[in-house]
Amino acid sequence: MDLNTIFFGGLAVLSLAVFFYFGKFKASKEQTDREDRINWTKGSFNYKSCLTIALGIFLLFFFLSFLGLD
């Protein structure tokens, strides 16, 4: 077993252990007790802004490719 496998394999195992252990705990009060939490309970999502930003990101990368940058 080489060093690459030991390091990244160990990272994967350790990370999964952290995920399965901490995932079961509730988030801290700092996370849950705040006014600006995402409100998943309302259809308040701004689709116009989302579409505008998405198109902006798309056009930015699309035109960069035309400039021949790689």
Binding site: F7, L11, F22, F25, Q31
Partner: peptide, 16 residues
């Protein structure tokens, strides 16, 4: 390793 590393790091960042 990097995928699960990212998952665990972001979970801790979120929970805390």
């Amino acid at each position: 390793g990097l995928t699960f590393g990212t998952l665990a790091s972001l979970l801790i960042c979120y929970k805390t």
